[in-house]
Design a protein around this nucleic acid. Sequence first.
DNA 1: GTAAAGAAAGTAACTAGTTAGTGCGTTGTT
DNA 2: AACAACGCACTAACTAGTTACTTTCTTTAC
Lengths: 205, 205
Amino acid sequence: MRDADATRARILAAAKKEFAKRGLGGARVDEIADRAKANKRMIYHYFGNKEDLFRIVVEEAYVDIRTAEQTLELEHLPAREALEKLVRFTWDYYLKNPEFITLVNSENLHKARHLKKSEKIEQLFRRFVDMVGDLLDRGVEEGVFRPGIDPVQLNITIAAIGYYYITNRFTGSIVFQRDLMAPEALQERLEFNIETIMRLVCVSP
Amino acid sequence: MRDADATRARILAAAKKEFAKRGLGGARVDEIADRAKANKRMIYHYFGNKEDLFRIVVEEAYVDIRTAEQTLELEHLPAREALEKLVRFTWDYYLKNPEFITLVNSENLHKARHLKKSEKIEQLFRRFVDMVGDLLDRGVEEGVFRPGIDPVQLNITIAAIGYYYITNRFTGSIVFQRDLMAPEALQERLEFNIETIMRLVCVSP
DNA sequence: GTAAAGAAAGTAACTAGTTAGTGCGTTGTT
DNA sequence: AACAACGCACTAACTAGTTACTTTCTTTAC
């Protein structure tokens, strides 16, 4: 049974897991081949080398989160509801896809040298920033949002308050002496995050 | 010239740099020895093995940030000023010590298995959480802070909005198509962060 | 229809270089 | 002399990448 596409896809999925688990430096090409039930030679055949494979994994991770975001259709909701939905989505996505966070961390450890080579990333995010910009404008028109908020700063803040909690869940649970991943703790954090963003953006909370 | 303490200290400093630059998996013991102008044999003599060396580096990084925090003496300031000072301090510390962030990221990639072995970390942080708890109480008494805010959630949020920006400065600069490390960008972010926290905590912003 | 040719998919074993960790001897200090 | 600090040179295991080969599928010629 030969299937080039399926093998390629299995390698990519395996690479995503391995890179997310151990980072670029700690990941082992042999391990990726095993996980993918493929041969190491196939990895080099389809992806050239380890770094290129990593680049494609990271690119794909960014495409995935932005694709998911675009299904939100925030345009059809009142501004306040749309903003809350975005905060909830971001939180849920990090929670369900912690490998996204690990990959981004790993890419930043390497000063984003792989993403620098990518071309499709820039336009992907321009659309996203525009979407949040439009949402902010709409909220101001509706009289519910403060004017003058920078959509990039808001984006970063929405991401930050979820991302930091999830990425540092292990040291955080030790340092703060509570299980940050307990269901009640997660619920509490999500509500705190929504309150943080609402107080930041809305005219009257 | 023989000096056990100095050699040990040079190794620790070199290890901190190397681990911060490449993570636990990517760091090379030979490189640490070279940087420290010591011999690899000395590393094993003083620290046992690579993992133990890493554990001590991470522990020391946590002790350093908490030690710096304790010089703030927030008790002697009005609550609002104290809170703003804490946000500024956190931001400045991350900016001046980006290796702290990389070490914490690396430790979380390994599910905090080194920090779990550490004993002095817990009490270090209990004091810190108490300090912020006291600050919140004082702000409520002064009539400037909302009551009922969880000091742990506030701590996490103050850290998050700075940490995320700094740790993801490389991918962030590509994705948002602006130089996030330009002096004006840094100043803008700090002010945005202060506003975020003030709106979250204060009764009237 | 079918057989030969060729291309693509897949594998095992290997190479060259790297890496954490050590054995053992040397040098300096008290 | 005794002990601690130090350093060279080694090893056993590992690791990214390659070579040379087999198997399977597709295309083309008749």
